[in-house]
């Protein structure tokens, strides 16, 4: 088309007038907006990049073995994240099994046992509504029920339970999807052998759904690791120079320690906070990588 000389092109434009001009302006508009859309998408990616680079450059200087193995301190140079790191592990040791059992149990009930009636619909709707409740409200629940009513105090156990309830909807939905994706033929084969419902669920459905369930659980736990607000509510401490000794010990976690450093006026503490963030992000990265790895490794099987 371009090979045709300029004169012809001009003639064409003059001849057909309005219509041709209209087409070209529409095309320009289309291209212009395509650029805008790409730009908008790029914006998020650039922000992510800036955020990561910024935190990395701020925090790398304070990141050291001492930082990992020291308790918090009034002097930024001596401050460490040891107690918060161990506290996070302690809390996860409560949250992971509790949320796994409750979440997978609920999913099995809804997918395999529940009759199709209003009550089941209510449970399902309730779960999707819980997913939309702000995390700080879960904190109020934990403060009232676990810390006060059940007298667990501001303990690892209270924090772990609160977090387990917070991530329960994510685990239920992910586990339901995993269970639903187990082919019906496998269940038929098992029932056809004279297996009972629980035998079929335990021996066929759960092993086949396990990769999906695990992926969902790990992603949900990585959400719990980064949560701050509910734990502030149940009173996880902001300055802890000791390690939890048992489930009823007081504790702190990494996001709260980071929050504490961020709130300090001295700029050095912001660098310490950035170091803590690097550690937190690395943990999340590792967990997400494991989840993706499990998903990719087992996806082909079914």
């Amino acid at each position: 088309m371009r090979a045709v000389g300029d004169e012809t092109a001009t003639g064409y434009t003059q001849g057909k007038g309005k219509n041709a001009a209209n087409i070209s302006s529409r095309e320009i508009k289309s291209k212009l907006f395509k650029g805008l859309f790409i730009g908008a998408t790029g914006f998020s990616l650039i922000v992510l990049l800036v955020l990561l680079i910024r935190i990395f450059t701020q925090g790398i200087g304070f990141l050291s073995w001492d930082f990992l193995t020291s308790f918090p301190s009034r002097r930024p140079a001596d401050a460490g994240i040891y107690s918060a790191f161990i506290g996070t592990i302690w809390m996860m040791a409560v949250t992971a099994p509790v949320s796994f059992v409750l979440g997978v149990g609920t999913a099995i009930y809804l997918e395999e046992y529940a009759p199709k009636n209003r009550f089941t619909g209510l449970i399902q709707m309730n779960i999707s509504n819980l997913a939309g409740v702000p995390s700080i409200v879960f904190g109020l629940l934990g403060l009232t029920i676990f810390v006060r009513e059940l007298s667990l105090g501001r303990s690892v156990l209270a924090g772990g339970f609160t977090m387990a309830l917070l991530i329960l909807p994510i685990i239920v939905v992910a586990s339901q999807e995993a269970i639903r994706s187990v082919p019906a033929e496998l269940k038929e084969a098992s029932y056809g052998m004279g297996a009972t419902k629980w035998q079929t669920t335990y021996r066929i459905v759960l092993p086949a759904a396990l990769p999906g369930i695990l992926t969902g659980n790990i992603l949900a736990l990585s959400r719990a690791i980064g949560e701050t607000a509910p734990l502030i509510m149940i009173g996880a401490l902001t300055y802890v120079a000791f390690l939890p000794e048992h489930l009823l010990s007081q504790f702190t976690v990494m996001p709260i320690q980071i929050f504490n450093w961020t709130s300090r006026p001295q700029e050095e503490f912001h660098f310490v906070a950035a170091s803590g963030i690097i550690l937190l992000l690395v943990m999340l990265l590792v967990m997400n990588s494991i989840a993706v790895w499990i998903r990719n490794k087992f996806q082909k099987r079914l």
Partner: peptide, 11 residues
């Protein structure tokens, strides 16, 4: 981007 903890965004 969606998985970054909110405290990190706050910082």
């Amino acid at each position: 981007l969606a998985g970054i903890p909110t405290i990190v965004y706050g910082f």
